[in-house]
């Protein structure tokens, strides 16, 4: 196992910068999120932190497709850093869509708003898939059109040659679909990624359930990317830390990326890093940084810990 800062190769550990701090998210407390200075949550400050992390051991970026993350991609592009950065895009950015649903009077209002956005984008494939899906009541087609629309937004920000490693289905949508047995959505997601030349990805807080359902539906996870919480406290590892660790062992051909390794800021860096380094099946980790000193040290520390465990 080799560890490099960029670009990530098949044998490299993925050391991804997560975007939660930039989006004003703190799962420790909302007080803390509110107290974060604008130099973390503003586009310029967030872009600086991301660039610093990439200069100090990080080799990729795991981000929800939001206006902020798209601006950050533009910044990376201008600095010539995009080609050496592994990009993992989570869609839809559910926070924005849930808020919109509240504001617009529920699902019909949200669907109308999203449809108008796709139409205004003049993305022929997305519009055609949307219309086709609506007419034929084929939600798989609608979803594929939607993901293409998000991909086009990324290309607009990152340039036509931007390389995305995987589009990951956001946990709120994916976990909801697991509970409601929406097999068709996952199949549409696989197809949409295949069409984009990317690995199908899933963001989940219910890893064992995802593995079980995919096995039942005969949907392969070989070559897929899964981002799931892994931390020493078992925080948000459902139904339990032991079950998630066991599920990880069943996924030798899947790139599993750990997030929430700090249990949302409840664990110290050393303890957090020591734990994930003991899970050799992990392909990598995603960690948010909110201070330059963290951006400079975190990924170097992770790199050292993975190297130590690999010996």
């Amino acid at each position: 196992m080799t560890v490099t800062s960029s670009p990530p190769h098949a044998d490299d550990k993925l050391l991804l910068v997560g975007d939660n701090p930039f989006l004003g998210v703190s799962h420790l407390s909302q007080d803390r999120a509110r107290e974060r200075a604008p130099d973390v949550t503003g586009a310029a400050g967030a872009g600086e932190l991301l660039a610093t992390a990439l200069d100090h051991g990080a080799n990729g970026f795991l981000f929800s497709v939001s206006e902020l993350s798209l601006t950050m991609l533009s910044t990376l592009r201008r600095r010539g850093r995009l080609g050496s950065t592994g990009l993992y895009a989570i869609a839809p950015w559910s926070f924005e869509y849930v808020r919109a649903a509240v504001r617009l009077g529920g699902m019909p209002g949200l669907a109308r708003e999203l449809g108008e956005r796709v139409f205004r984008s003049r993305n022929a494939y997305a519009v055609a898939q949307g219309i086709n899906g609506a007419v034929r009541n084929d939600l798989g087609a609608v979803y594929k059109g939607y993901l293409n629309y998000e991909a086009a937004r990324i290309r607009t920000a990152g340039g036509p040659d931007v390389q995305i490693a995987s589009y990951l289905l956001h946990e709120v949508v994916g976990d909801m679909a697991l509970g409601l047995d929406m097999e068709w959505l996952f199949r549409a997601h696989v197809e949409a990624n295949r069409r984009a030349g990317t690995a199908p990805g899933y963001n989940t807080r219910n890893l064992p359930l995802l593995v079980e359902k995919f096995r039942r539906w005969d949907i392969s996870l070989a070559g897929a990317v899964i981002a799931a919480p892994f931390n020493a406290e078992g925080f948000q590892m459902c139904p339990s830390r032991a079950a998630c660790e066991a599920a990880l062992e069943e996924l030798p051909d899947t790139d599993v990326i750990a997030f929430s390794i700090l249990a949302a800021g409840h664990l110290g860096y050393t303890e957090a890093i020591d734990y994930v380094a003991t899970l050799p099946r992990l392909r990598g980790v995603a960690v948010g940084v909110s201070k330059p000193e963290h951006a400079r040290s975190t990924f170097k520390d992770l790199e050292r810990a993975f190297r130590r465990e690999a010996v």
Binding site: G179, R205, F235, C238
Partner: peptide
Amino acid sequence: QDLDDSSVPFLL
């Protein structure tokens, strides 16, 4: 986290 709050069979 101190209260083991996320120990549930399914999290959404």
